[in-house]
Computed example of a mutant assay.
Amino acid sequence: MAFELPKLKYAYDALEPNIDARTMEIHHSKHHGGYTSKLNSAIVGTDLEGKTIENILSNLDMDNKAVRNNGGGFYNHSLFWEVMNPEGRGRLSGELKEAIEAAFGSFDAFKDEFSKAAATQFGSGWAWLCVHKGGKVEVCSTPNQDNPLMPDVSCGGTPILGLDVWEHAYYLNYQNRRPDYIEAFFNVINWNEVEKRFANAK
């Protein structure tokens, strides 16, 4: 079955003033929609058809640019929408909080590390919080639509929190002020969802 553009669980304007409605509409319907249709075109009639996106990316031929770029774009954005919410739902707690404090020393230190990864990613890309088997977490960044599931990227594990730092994710509202956008992202993180992903992945 072909991949489908996931529906958002909140309205396009629900994340304002942190992320504006026009950016959300264009980002979801046009950019994510484009990755979805191009991914389907890239895998139709191949042995990748019918596989999960996680299976496709984990066993990816990195020279297959169409699947690398559009499969990554599909997966990354699907996660991105899920780890945000308009209500500040949940606070970091439990085993994930313990894992973050063990890895970084404190939540503030983690926030600094994650923000640095996002701010210093040259050009387009993503910042990630990933979890390895056993529960160890790390922060990293990847270029373009690459992600930690793919072979031969700069970090591994399962991504449980991701921030899109392509200009299309923030330029209408923030222009070149990427650090302001990164700071605003922390106002809309759905920690309940991130903790659920941590529990499933570790």
Score class of each variant (00 low, 15 high):
A118R: 07
A99W: 07
N59P: 02
A102N: 13
V153H: 00
E101G: 05
G50N: 00
K65S: 08
S115H: 01
D152Y: 09
S106C: 10
S154I: 11
H28W: 13
H31T: 15
T46C: 03
H27D: 07
P148Y: 08
A103K: 08
G157K: 09
D61R: 11
K7D: 04
I100H: 00
R22I: 13
R177P: 00
S37D: 12
Q121T: 15
A127S: 10
Y35E: 11
F80C: 03
S115C: 06
L15N: 04
N64W: 15
W126Y: 14
S41W: 05
R89L: 14
W81A: 02
P159I: 07
E98Y: 06
A169S: 10
Y10C: 00
A66D: 15
D13E: 15
R22M: 11
P6N: 12
E167T: 15
T52Q: 07
Y171D: 13
V139P: 00
L60Q: 03
A14N: 00
S37I: 14
D13R: 09
G125M: 01
N192A: 04
G90V: 04
G94D: 00
F186A: 05
N64H: 06
F185I: 11
E54C: 08
E16P: 01
I100S: 05
G105M: 11
Y181F: 15
Q145R: 09
I100Y: 08
Y170F: 15
G71T: 05
R91L: 10
Q175C: 05
G94Q: 10
Y10D: 02
H32R: 06
N187I: 07
Y35F: 15
C155I: 11
G88P: 04
T120Q: 13
L15P: 01
A119Q: 10
T142A: 06
S93C: 07
I26M: 07
C140L: 09
P17Q: 03
G156K: 12
W128E: 01
G88W: 09
G73D: 08
G71W: 04
G156W: 04
M24V: 07
N144D: 15
S78A: 08
L39H: 08
K196S: 10
W191Q: 06
T158A: 05
A184D: 14
R89G: 04
S115T: 13
A42E: 09
R89Q: 13
G94V: 11
A118N: 10
E183V: 01
T23H: 03
V188E: 01
F107Q: 11
